[in-house]
Amino acid sequence: MTWSPRTFTKPLVTGNNNRGPAVVLEGVSKAYGAAIALDRVSLDVAAGSFVALVGASGSGKSTLIRTINRLIEPDSGSVSIDGRDLREQPVHQLRRTIGHVIQSVGLFPHMSVAENIAIGLRIAGEAPGKRVAELLDLVDLPQEMADRSPATLSGGQQQRVGVARALATAPGLMLLDEPFGALDPLTRDALARAYRALHERLALTSIMVTHDMAEALLTADRIVVMAAGRIVADATPAALVRGEGGGEAQALVAVPRGHAERLAALR
């Protein structure tokens, strides 16, 4: 790995006084031919909050999260981060300030774990220094893994590398698109808890897409329920568990509640 640094790397942990940015969507619409994916969606995400986007397949939640790093350009409406419209800067500059984690991870198979983690710094012309070691510690992976090929890692380990790669440039905003969806339940639970802890420690703003209401209730501060390209409920986990948020949200909450009741009945 040889590249010449142009700037000094931003510190990873900045302290709780320096929170992730606020994100605002205003009247965002996107259609694919006759199929409407997003129908005039507006959403305010407060700085430092953890928002879960929940809904069935095709509800528009994945489309919505991708408009925030411009992997999808909306047909109309606007998106801004800390009051600054996304279109004010080149798209690759924007994406370098946002961590992106996807279900299939997408590690580069021809690079080692360390090279994967450092790639964000490399493309920005920054020196990795001790950052790779720091990130491996942060996501609870042993240092010996640095030189391994991604193909030799388990699914859970790969997604930990994926999270480390997304955090390498110290972004304030994290977009997580079904991040733990492909993992077994134990790994999934462990990773969701670990990520929540990172969110607190690094004072991030996190927006996570999931179809699993239980995961959303236990991980996020705020749950936004989507159906047919619109937001149909927007409430705290406590409010949803209390029965607020309307019919579509309650239908989703009913699943984990039913599981809990049936498990209690087994005793």
């Binding site: 690759h92 994406r95 992106h100 996807i102 997408g106 580069f108 198979p109 021809h110 790639i119 964000g120």
Partner: peptide, 27 residues
């Protein structure tokens, strides 16, 4: 090349030239 790898490269903020040089050409 796996579509997810391309999406990851885009999501990381690679320019088209960087994506070609660092990801697509080697693969």
């Amino acid at each position: 090349i796996d579509r997810d790898v391309i999406e990851a490269a885009d999501g990381l903020g690679m320019t088209p030239a960087q994506r070609l040089r660092l990801v697509e050409v080697p693969l």
